[in-house]
Design a binder for these strands. Structure first.
Length: 397
DNA sequence: AATACGGGGTC
DNA sequence: GACCCAGTATT
């Protein structure tokens, strides 16, 4: 009976696979995307799971499948609605790429998610991991799928403090069970997220502990070595909340769409500009207002700062409330078209009913209670809350 | 090889 | 507060 570590001989590999697959069969969690084998659904789950924990993804996945139950429904949807469904999940580029990917599958692969690694990797937002995961889980292709869990598990099995991508790929390719690649890859990840955890691995419960070089040497807590990361850069933003107080009607505020590139691409926001050297918050906010065509504004009411921590940035947003008079023709300004274009969330009309092109609006006036219908980042949603409170306050006084 | 890209859970 | 999560694309 040999449980030689690490699993390199063909006999050790056979044992390793059996132990891991037994573990998975007995201990796997019930996850929504494990109830089905539709490749579209597997693709969606894998994209959502990129850099995102299982528990975070579950509610988003369920909502997504109610709204976009099949590839065709997603391919036919508006980008704004797709972004809205993604709001709060982060890495919004994923939503844009997924939308583009299913359209590409519809046009070039007759609506069927491809099964070979090369075609999968050619889809936007599908890298080595996701290609391997979809190929193995949805199509039974014996491909490796090395995510953060697998990386940690492999680093410990082979007791390597800083495994490179090529080495990880080589190990994973040798280990993956050709008879059950999907189950095997999921088993490695399941092991990593439930037993072989980063800080305090439960080695005594591990089904493959006899194969683990780190376990044998007692180095499991130091494998792999932590990745050093750059400290977050501070970003100060002056935000212009433009409010149009209209007699006999509720106040309207201006929202604009961010650039298609960079941070929070394509999401909506209150106009804001990052402070330049030596600039005051209010000056930056006024610049933002001017960029939307509003200059010569009165001082404006300064609201509380909103601080938001991204992985790589520390954002400090300072909102100012500016009263502006109606822009010409503002009463009709895009409101109806945009609302229907954006929001399924408002539950009124479908995007297909929306006039063509309306979704391309770059800025729109909306009433304060409609802010919830737009794809706003967490930081912008917090600003929105302050705005709603301030407008309600002013309305009463 | 390093950096940009969200948000949130955990110790 | 540090770390890291079922990573990808760009430079």
């Amino acid at each position: 009976m040999s449980g030689l570590a690490p699993p390199t001989s063909s006999e050790a590999i056979r044992l390793f696979r059996r132990r891991l697959l037994d573990f998975f069969r007995e201990r796997k969690r019930d996850l929504p995307w494990r109830e089905e084998d539709d490749p579209y659904r597997i693709l969606v789950s894998e994209v959502m799971l990129q850099q995102t924990r299982v528990d975070t993804v579950i509610p988003y996945y369920r909502r997504w499948m109610e709204r976009f139950p099949d590839l065709e429904s997603l391919a036919g949807a508006d980008l704004d609605e797709v972004l809205k469904m993604w709001t709060g999940l982060g890495y919004y580029r994923r939503a844009r790429n997924l939308h583009a990917a299913v359209r590409l599958v519809r046009e070039q692969h007759e609506g069927s998610v491809p099964d070979d690694l090369e075609k999968l990797s050619a889809l936007p937002g599908v890298g080595d991991y996701t290609a391997g995961a979809v190929a193995s889980i949805a199509h039974g292709v014996p491909a490796p799928a090395v995510d953060g869990n697998a990386r940690r598990v492999l680093a410990r099995l082979f007791d390597d403090a800083a495994p490179t991508e090529p080495r990880l790929g080589k190990w994973a390719s040798a280990l993956v069970d050709p008879a059950a690649p999907g189950a095997f890859n999921q088993a490695v990840m399941e092991l990593g997220s439930t037993i072989c955890t980063p800080r305090a691995p439960a080695c005594s419960s591990c089904p493959v502990q006899v194969h683990c070089a780190s376990r044998i040497r007692g180095t499991e807590r130091e494998r792999p070595a932590p990745r050093r990361r750059a400290p977050p850069k501070e970003m100060r933003v002056g935000v212009a909340v433009l409010v149009e107080a209209r007699a006999g009607r509720r106040s309207a505020v201006l929202l604009r769409r961010r650039s298609e590139d960079g941070l929070l691409a394509g999401m909506w926001e209150f106009p804001g500009e990052e402070l330049e050297d030596g600039e005051e918050e209010r000056e930056a906010a006024l610049r933002a207002a001017a960029a939307e065509g509003y200059s010569g504004l009165a001082t404006g009411e300064r609201l509380d700062e909103v601080e938001h921590r991204f992985s790589h940035r520390l954002g400090r947003y300072r909102p100012f409330l500016f009263s502006v008079s109606a822009p010409s023709g503002s009463d009709e300004l895009g409101l109806d078209e945009l609302q229907t274009g954006i929001l399924g969330a408002r539950g009124e009309e479908r995007s297909e009913d929306r006039p063509a092109g309306a979704g391309a609006e770059r800025a729109v006036w909306i009433e304060a209670d409609e802010l919830g219908g737009f794809p706003l980042s967490v930081a912008q949603a917090r600003i929105a809350r302050l705005v709603v409170e301030a407008v309600a306050r002013d309305g009463r006084s």
